[in-house]
């Protein structure tokens, strides 16, 4: 949706189950769906649209590992090399006492990295204005959108026919 002056042909559905069967039919007819918008996460849509499983957890793992090793190695360096002090007769390298902070920083690094990555790959940030097709999509309408520029007149008619066959409540074209 980054391009300027994009023409979008979209249909609105009233129910997620109608939406699901519509996506199934679109797949059977090999229609090229651009986007699906829903007011809440509908399970199964991702499979129908052929989305791969999100890889956010890999980001979480990498940054968790970085946070974990950073915290542990830093405390080790401070207490064995940079400024060794004996606390309560314990050895300089008192690994068990480093565990709580190591754990906290693991969680902190993983969480912050995943959240930042999530907003970055979704193209969402404070002040970002994404064109909305219809205000009711965040309320109670389920939307299937097609890129109207990428289709010929004939194909667009086929898509409109598909919308009426799958009981779309409304069909609109919008330039965004």
């Amino acid at each position: 949706m980054e391009n300027q002056n994009k023409s979008v042909l979209f249909g609105l559905y009233n129910d997620e189950e109608v939406l699901m069967s519509a996506i199934q039919q679109a797949n059977e007819k090999h229609l090229d769906i651009m986007e699906v918008f829903t007011p809440f996460p509908v399970h199964g849509v991702d499979e129908l649209l052929g989305f791969k499983e999100s890889r956010l957890h890999i980001v979480g793992f990498i940054f968790g590992a970085i946070g974990c090793s950073f915290a542990f190695l830093f405390m080790t360096w401070v207490f064995t090399a940079d400024w060794p002090i004996i606390f309560g007769g314990k050895p300089y390298f008192s690994a068990p006492a480093f565990i709580p902070i190591t754990f906290e920083l693991t969680v902190l690094f993983a969480s912050i990295a995943m959240v930042v990555t999530f907003y970055a790959i979704c193209g969402l940030w404070p002040g970002k204005v994404n064109p909305t097709l219809d205000d009711r999509i965040t309320d109670d309408k389920f939307c299937i959108a097609f890129d109207a520029n990428a289709h010929s007149e004939e194909e667009l008619n086929a898509i409109k026919l598909f919308f009426s066959e799958t009981n779309a409540e409304e069909v609109h074209t919008k330039d965004i």
């Binding site: 829903t38 649209l49 999100s54 956010l56 957890h57 993983a110 959240v115 404070p126 994404n130």
Partner: peptide, 29 residues
């Protein structure tokens, strides 16, 4: 509210990631 919502659209791919993120954050929390 657009500023606060970060320009959220409700795209299916975003929801899928959002659910994955919620689940992992819950696992960490």
């Amino acid at each position: 509210y657009n500023g606060l919502s970060f320009g959220w659209t409700g795209s299916a791919k975003h929801w899928q990631r959002w659910e994955a993120l919620s689940l992992i954050l819950a696992g960490l929390a």
